[in-house]
Design a binder for these strands. Structure first.
Lengths: 153, 153
DNA sequence: CATAATGATTATGTTCTATAACTAAATACG
DNA sequence: CGTATTTAGTTATAGAACATAATCATTATG
């Protein structure tokens, strides 16, 4: 008789916290992209817009580093935000190689609206998890992130 | 005077737990792929191997569902595991459309070794986080995951 | 028995991401 | 100075990851 499986067990993978993080992140990302699609934004372009709003005059290279993506891949994202007139791309007078990125009024407004919607969805996803638990999760995640920085140093 | 940024602030994004989850997951994934490269495995092929070891006789369609990937994309992964003689792909006698996937002895051994290495790296990443916190994190992540299941039902 | 549905595969296309090579401008230094 | 090197941004391109449509063989349905 050949062995057959009716219910698939992923018990060994569930031993790893990283596995749970990946599965939860998949849910969060799907939800986030769903919300952002209403604003014609994706996770990466939304993040870029937020950082430009928060850091007026940021350079593309700084933005690429902050987003942890390669410079060439940022170009197309910036192109689109500029074409939609959500940001401006002006030459830096003191260094004519660089561009200064700044959000337009429309960009700041869209960013605000999107942030509100994203926040509401986050709240819905995390509603069962109390504030203390959330902050201990964030603290733990920050520690993990810090691990990779100490590796590189 | 043009505005310029010396230190980039991502404060608005840090408001979102999902942002921290993404950043931590990037670190975990990089570390994991680094560990698995020693066994010529990637995250996805390792996960597949684990599920085949744990569920002898699993079908490709069941495995694709468990891994949350499309069937066509699983084929190449299974091809490689079979070519490396880590798994076998046998016709199911009662349904000659389907294949039964089973790990070979070499597959189980590689899986064990990889799991040990992965576990050690997880432990290193999470060393600062005590057991109670870890299980409350896992519990919270499971609740988030459950959210998407209740959406689909 | 004809039709529909299923498991796996092939072919194909899209998106994401990384690398190399290039232009223009700024800096380093002999 | 002026030549070499570095930096900011871009273009071109290639690979990996992921999704869709079409196909073949087989099984289930009416």
């Amino acid at each position: 008789m050949q062995p057959q499986i009716d219910k698939v067990s992923d018990a060994p993978l569930r031993e790893f916290v990283g596995y749970h993080i990946k599965r939860a992140f998949n849910v969060i990302q799907a939800d986030l992209n769903d919300v952002l699609s209403r604003f014609d934004l994706r996770m990466i372009s939304y993040s870029a817009l937020v950082l430009i709003v928060e850091n007026p005059g940021i350079r593309q290279s700084q933005l690429a580093t902050a987003l942890a993506i390669e410079r060439p891949n940022l170009v197309v994202i910036i192109d689109e935000l500029e074409k939609r007139e959500l940001i401006t791309r002006d030459r830096l007078l003191t260094d004519r190689r660089a561009y200064l990125l700044q959000a337009t009024l429309a960009g700041r407004r869209l960013c605000d609206k999107a942030a509100t919607a994203v926040g509401a969805h986050e709240e819905a996803l995390f509603e069962e998890i109390d504030k203390d638990t959330r902050s201990s999760i964030v603290d733990a995640l920050n520690r993990i992130e810090a691990k990779s920085r100490e590796d590189r140093s």
